[in-house]
Amino acid sequence: MKSKFLRIILIVVPLGCISFFLYMTFFHSAYDHPGRYVYLDHCSSCHGEKGEGIQQLVPPLADADLAREQFDSLPCWILAGTNRPMIVNGKTYDQPMYPTAMTDIEMTNLLNYLASDMVHAKRQYKSDAVIKMMQRCRP
C-alpha cells in the first residue's frame, strides 16, 4: 500500500514539474501585462510592436541603453514630446517625438511594462509616484 502511494508521488511530482516548466517557457508570454495594451495603443505605431524602432527614423526601445539610463525622463518625453536628438545604442536619432496624452493609471502600467518586458530596467512604479512625475512636466 505504502509503496504504491510512493510510486504515484514519484510519477506525479516530476510530471508536474515538467509541465510547469513547459508552461512557463512557452505560454507565460501569453499572459499579458496591462501596460502592453497601453503600449500597443499609443507607442507601437512608431516604436514597433516589439520595440524594434524604424531604421534611423525612430529609435528602438527594446534593450535601449538611453531609456534604461534615463528611465525617469520617459513620462515627460511621452507627455510633452521632445525635439532633442537622441543617441540610442550608438546611433543618433533626430526625428521629433510627438506628445501623447495619457492618464496616470495608463502611464503607471506602461512604465512597469517597459521596465520589465522591453527596456529591461530594474524599476517598479506605483501610481502616486507616477502622478508626481507627471505633474512635474505638464506644461
Binding site: 505605431s45 512608431c46 524604424i54 525612430v58 521629433p96
Partner: peptide
C-alpha cells in the same frame, strides 16, 4: 514628414 500618427507605421510596412 511631420506626421505624428500613422505615417511611421506605414513607412515601416513599406520598408
Amino acid at each position: 514628414t511631420h506626421c505624428p500618427s500613422i505615417c511611421p507605421k506605414m513607412k515601416a510596412e513599406l520598408h
